[in-house]
Design a protein around this nucleic acid. Structure first.
Lengths: 193, 193
DNA sequence: GACATAAACGGACACCATGTCCACTTATTC
DNA sequence: GAATAAGTGGACATGGTGTCCGTTTATGTC
């Protein structure tokens, strides 16, 4: 699903593409996802035209850059689906999601945008994260630990919001605290977290 | 505290200043707080130099533009402090805060920035909003309806985060739902909201 | 190996926004 | 009504985005 069905890229194009993705990832990690594309192109040593040809929009490039991380997240989430304590598992998933967002400052903004205007590879990536959230959530509903009226959309939006509000160099204590508040609000009755 | 202690502005400067603020408010309300300052200046009919002279940073201008709204919020909050049901009052305050944020798209971003790097008139304005939150919160703690370990900073950050995640043209149902989740997480025990 | 050709490239360019600077204009004060 | 401090406007330097097109290059074919 990753590689498109078109004919394979020319060798030099392939090389450039990979280099761009790798460089972009480093730049996004250190300067945030709004880093200058012009500069990324310059770092790679290609023209801007080349960069834009491979990635028509910034979000396409972001999607390519974070894809590995997202796949890793997905793998971890898969394990959690079968966890013994769904609420706790959900908490861990939220934490992981938030810490991931932290790696790329400005990402939650993009995620939010994507969740409104659905289209493109980045939006798809976000969609997959939301589905993962749903899978972890469903278990909790089955066991009755999570309120029935809470949807994956709710949880995903809220998790993204919390991640967003803590991106600017805050300690992790606040993150823990806010996740705990979220979980309490999502849980049915008086479950302890 | 609003007007600085310096000598009064020259008549023409005063007029320009007011016009700029008024125009900016309209622009921020319709295009968000990232609206082009160049364009605002052009609309007013002054040079960019004039605008920047009055408001060295964009946040200074935002602060001036939203000041009236914030004062209105403050007045309303004052009433709530003495409310009979503190948790409910807090909910109303959060709702009002979020709806206000909605009016100026992009505002939560600025609020977050300000809460990190404290300085300038805008940061002060944000600080006053946080204090208001605290006042509403304290009552709830006194009556034992709100957890002791929840601070005004927590609530303010979370409220801002929720407002942020719902700025992009979503219905108010989601807002209600998310505020309810927040309140549940903040409340001690099993208070109904 | 040479050639034809489609694919890919690079960087100049048009556009837009920010924020600064300074020669000029104008309100105020005496 | 002159002196002067206060205020003004807009040109400019800077830096980012996204497009366009003349040039270069990989690749399949003979």
């Amino acid at each position: 699903m990753t590689t498109s069905s078109k004919r394979p890229l020319r060798a030099d194009a392939r090389r450039n593409r990979d280099l761009i993705v790798e460089t972009a990832r480093a730049a996004f990690a250190s300067k945030g996802v709004d880093a200058s594309l012009e500069e990324i192109a310059k770092t790679v040593g290609v023209g801007q035209g080349t960069l834009y040809r491979h990635f028509p929009t910034r979000e396409d490039l972001i999607a390519a850059a974070i894809q590995d991380d997202v796949e890793q997240l997905a793998r971890n989430a898969d394990k959690r689906v079968r966890a013994r304590y769904p609420l706790k598992a959900l908490g861990e998933w939220l934490r992981e999601l938030a810490l991931f967002s932290r790696t790329y400052s400005g990402l939650p903004n993009r995620v939010l945008d994507a969740s409104v205007g659905k289209s493109g590879s980045f939006a798809e990536l976000c969609g997959s994260l939301e589905s993962l959230t749903d899978r972890v959530l469903v278990r909790g509903k089955e066991t009755g630990q999570i309120r029935a009226d809470v949807t994956a959309e709710d949880v995903f939006l809220l998790a993204n919001a919390v991640a967003w509000s803590l991106t600017k160099a805050r300690g992790t204590e606040l993150l823990e605290k806010h996740i705990a508040i979220l979980l309490r609000g999502i849980a049915s009755g008086t479950n302890e977290v």
